[in-house]
Design a binder for these strands. Structure first.
Lengths: 233, 233
DNA sequence: ATTATTAGATTTGTTCTACAAATAAACATA
DNA sequence: TATGTTTATTTGTAGAACAAATCTAATAAT
């Protein structure tokens, strides 16, 4: 196959060079960086090109600059870059479907950490959230987020929690979209938030996974039915 | 508390404005964008500022520009932004620990999709991978990646697969780091890749989760022992 | 009439210059 | 010592200029 060989712009190249430079020299958060003019001269490019590359790294949180003082390395947020791209209109249907599934995967996978780290206080708070629901069989989006958000929090993993919170709106967007195309399915024995709460209180991590699967069954069904696995031959 | 009030730079503001503009007007991949000068004039900023903002969006894959022709909206990759900051030296220990756990969570969560979508061909390929291992009880990093990578692939979720591949080096980095500080623990009954293969062949998704947990037990132990849950009071 | 060539206009990539503004450091003052 | 002032430094922003590639349209050739 002949693919158009991609010619990187100066900015692209400088961005890569800078990241490699930081990596090779093991720059850590707080370390001061050379100033813009110095970089531009060393790399033999204009200050503008350097600034565009730095602007990218600044957006990702890799560097910080105190205006008129200098630049320092800083600790990036893992998910900032992803967050900015989470726009349902420009993410393709495939990406959206993948995100939808990703949430289900994550939700099923938290059992061990949840049970290893749950505290009495957590369970009390979770109960309070459940008690605030006006109807156990018809929860609002806010109640949904409150409940599951608390579960993520109980894993003690802040990245994971943030990740899930980011995914949630996309998840809802996709599900709403699917729902329009499919007849609504009533489940005979739905597992409610309250049921899950009891499992967390008295059950095992295995019980939790089974309960969670039942709880998420409509979503699993949606994903596995409407989007059959396509094998690229 | 008095926190330093953050004043956004023009570039930051333009970046936000552009993203909102794309979102509000439901720009889709392929849609042409106004040119740089037009944007600069409409926003009453210099072309430099617009270019820095556009450079950021270009990095994330939100826009593409065919040099000297024009800019078009494009379909971003979800994980590009994350990939660029995956540098163990600048990610803090907390982030690294979170990533470490995230892999465990994901690995435990894939059971349903794996079993719903596995094919004979998948299982044959997985068997081939297992058979290539020289020692079932002492697999190399490459063999490890091959095996688990195939599992991710079998979920039929390309984003998920890419996600895991990105996380793997960080995971190994963290575990190597932990291993130095802890005595090596021999497990009495390790679950090997071959065991997991058999479970995938003949077992259920529940069996899979239990097998996978046993397989990953050293990692779970590492995470749950060395990093006890800290409750922020 | 169709094709080939040329010229001009457009747009991004890149460079350069200039200046404002904020800070830190050095200095001066009370 | 504590406070005010000056100065040098560095980023943020603006604007002009040009190269290079593409598209359009006009012109020339067959």
């Amino acid at each position: 196959m002949l693919a158009p060989l991609e010619s990187l712009s100066m900015t692209d190249r400088v961005e890569n060079i800078l990241r490699e430079y930081f990596e090779e020299n093991a720059f850590k958060p707080g370390d001061p960086l050379p100033n813009e003019m110095e970089m531009a001269q060393k790399l033999n490019v204009s200050r503008n090109v350097v600034r565009e590359a730095l602007s990218r790294l600044r957006m990702l949180g890799m560097i910080e600059t105190r205006p008129r003082k200098g630049m320092v390395m800083s600790q990036p947020d893992l998910l900032t870059g992803m967050e900015k791209v989470l726009n349902p209109f420009i993410l393709g249907t495939k990406n959206l479907k993948n995100i939808f599934e990703l949430r289900l995967i994550l939700e099923m996978g938290i059992a061990e950490f949840l049970f290893a780290r749950k505290t009495k206080k957590d369970i009390e708070e979770l109960e309070a959230i459940v008690n605030l629901q006006s109807n156990d069989f018809e929860v609002t989006k806010e109640e949904e987020i409150a409940f599951h958000g608390k579960l993520y929090e109980m894993t003690g993993n802040s990245t994971f929690k943030r990740f899930q919170i980011l995914l949630m709106p996309v998840f809802n967007h996709v599900f709403t979209d699917y729902s329009k195309k499919r007849a609504h399915v009533e489940l005979p024995n739905p597992v409610t938030h309250r049921d899950i709460l009891e499992v967390i209180r008295k059950g095992t991590s295995d019980d939790f996974r089974q309960a969670m699967f039942k709880h998420l069954e409509p979503y699993f069904a949606t994903s596995l039915n409407t989007a059959p696995p396509k094998k690229k031959k």
